[in-house]
Design a protein around this nucleic acid. Structure first.
Length: 475
RNA sequence: GGCCCCAUCGUCUAAUGGUUAGGACACCACCCUUUCAAGGUGGGGAUACGGAUUCGAAUUCCGUUGGGGUCACCA
């Protein structure tokens, strides 16, 4: 049995898109399931689209997802290899130099368009004299084109779709080497997949139309073909390709919005793949064990952010508090100003995690829920303070009693605070709204907050009493 | 437009040719409740359409319709 070797082959042109990362996840899971190799190949053959830290961004995204690679290659370092095979194809009359200028091709295309014909290269250098071509290549810029078959059909095979046939009349002599000496995707991809012994090419469905190009290159080089697995597209809710205008599309954006890795991983793997009719939450180890190419679906999947939110909330709830605490620390550091971060850092992130766990879909939600820690309440009117009381006198009485009550507590924690305040509520015959509602106002001044008991115990006795006292002074 | 792919609740999906077509998100109602959540219980909601094959079709075949992808010296 041949070793399973798969690859993730991004071009480093910006922040990695979730669709690409989903492909990476499928490849990685399959490699790990088969005890094979997961290879990272940087496809940086387009000089114009290069981005400075593009390669690092790809690696960062994989690292964040926990997708470790076994080998890494960079195509721009392999130019001689592609050149060698391109020249071999010329020698064997399977490819040829084309000296048509950009202007010439534009004119051709415009003419075809005007005549209502499909636009394609007309093969004008297909039969150009080889000696002449050789000579002219020394002074004129040129590209190398592949001699596609003109008749018959090209049979392709996709592992989840079966046989797909293309009429060779539809194929044109596409470019394999650009005039700057770099290969095009179609060529570099085939050469590398062969040289790197790739067993399964798992990539997005948008590559399906160019499959015959790749198949014909394999044939002309007399190379054995890998298995092709085309992954269903990920679409936006309007059923078009997921793009910028739909909101977040890159992994980095989702991280910034407070999504955590296990949720992202779990959600993404379920876009185009399912194990059975009931299991939908998986650990990564479980996924490695059960991942199976045959269960990849054919139809495109719509990116359903509500389900992502649900997964994220579920994972936040289920993860251990100290794990969430770590995420929170990092997230707060990156999201709020340094002054507030320094204030919140004095408190225990594990306590904060426990406080926000039940009510956060994303880490961003916990930002809002924790604002009261560094935003000390201030009031414009007395009415604001006693809004939850029958009248202002009841309010000051409640505040006074609460201060006494809290001051009596020696072991100040959430259980004791809850116990004593409930006692107080009973003793004074207060409605929950009166006592707890009022305390929410003077402690947090937020419409929405974690439970009052949590807030008070997080802030501690001193700070809580301070806040209540200043509210009492105010009214 | 040519070519290619695809088609089960609004969404993600499950269903060796035989199930009251299952689950999850979302939605609605009720319960719980100091706000917000979470949780619990229940509910509505799908095989695009038309033929053919078959005792029997979501499932196989053909067509229609719809959606998507692709047609660069980008990947």
């Amino acid at each position: 049995m041949k070793e399973t070797r798969v690859r993730y082959a991004p071009s480093p042109t910006g922040d990695p898109h979730v669709g690409n990362i989903r492909s990476a996840i499928f490849n990685w899971l399959f490699a790990r399931n088969q005890k094979g190799k997961f290879i990272l190949r940087i496809e940086d053959t387009d000089q114009a689209r290069m981005v400075d830290d593009g390669i690092q961004k790809q690696k960062d995204a994989l690292n964040w997802m926990g997708l470790n690679w076994d080998e890494v290659y960079i195509q721009s370092e392999r130019i001689e290899i592609y050149t060698k095979y391109a020249e071999k194809l010329i020698d064997e009359d399977k490819a040829y130099r084309c000296f048509a200028t950009q202007q010439e091709l534009d004119d051709l295309r415009n003419k075809q368009k005007a005549a209502g014909k499909i636009t394609r290269y007309d093969g004008r250098y297909r039969n150009y004299d080889l000696d002449l071509s050789q000579k002219r290549s020394k002074e004129d810029p040129f590209v190398i084109r592949f001699k596609s078959p003109q008749e018959g059909i090209t049979k392709c095979y996709d592992e989840i779709r079966g046989e797909i046939t293309f009429n060779n009349k539809e194929l044109d002599d596409f470019i394999i080497m650009k005039s700057d000496g770099f290969p095009t995707y179609h060529f570099a991809n085939v050469v590398d997949d062969h040289l790197m012994n790739i067993s399964h090419v798992m990539r997005a469905e948008e590559w399906l139309p160019s499959l015959p190009k790749h198949v014909n290159i394999y044939k002309s080089l007399d190379w054995e073909m890998p298995l092709f697995v085309h992954l269903p597209m990920i679409l936006a809710s309007d059923k078009t390709k997921l793009s910028k205008r739909h909101g977040a599309t890159s992994i980095q954006e989702f991280i910034n919005e407070g999504y955590i890795k296990p949720a992202m991983f779990n959600f993404l793997v379920l876009l185009g793949w399912a194990l059975d009719d009931k299991t939908e939450q998986f650990t990564i180890e479980e996924l490695i064990n059960v991942f199976n190419i045959k269960k990849i679906s054919k139809s495109p999947a719509i990116f359903n952010k509500q389900k992502l939110d649900w997964f994220n909330g579920k994972y936040i709830r289920e993860l251990k508090s100290d794990e969430i605490a770590k995420e929170l620390d990092l997230f707060f550091k990156n999201s709020i100003n340094i002054k507030n971060y320094n204030i919140i850092k004095k408190y225990n992130f594990v306590d904060i995690a426990n406080m926000i766990k039940e009510r956060s879909k994303t880490l961003k939600d916990s930002l809002m829920l924790s604002e009261f820690i560094y935003n000390i309440p201030s009031f414009k009117s007395k009415e604001e303070v006693y809004a939850m009381c029958d009248d202002i006198d009841q309010c000051s009485y409640i505040l006074k009693s609460t201060i006494d009550c809290l001051n009596k507590i020696d072991d100040f924690n959430i259980e004791t605070v809850q116990f004593e305040l409930k006692n107080l509520m009973e003793e004074l015959n207060l409605k929950p709204k009166n006592l707890l509602g009022t305390l929410r106002i003077v402690i947090t001044n937020q419409k929405i907050s974690p439970p009052v008991f949590d807030c008070i115990s997080i802030l501690g006795k001193k700070e809580s009493v301070n806040r209540i006292s200043s509210a009492l002074d105010f009214i």
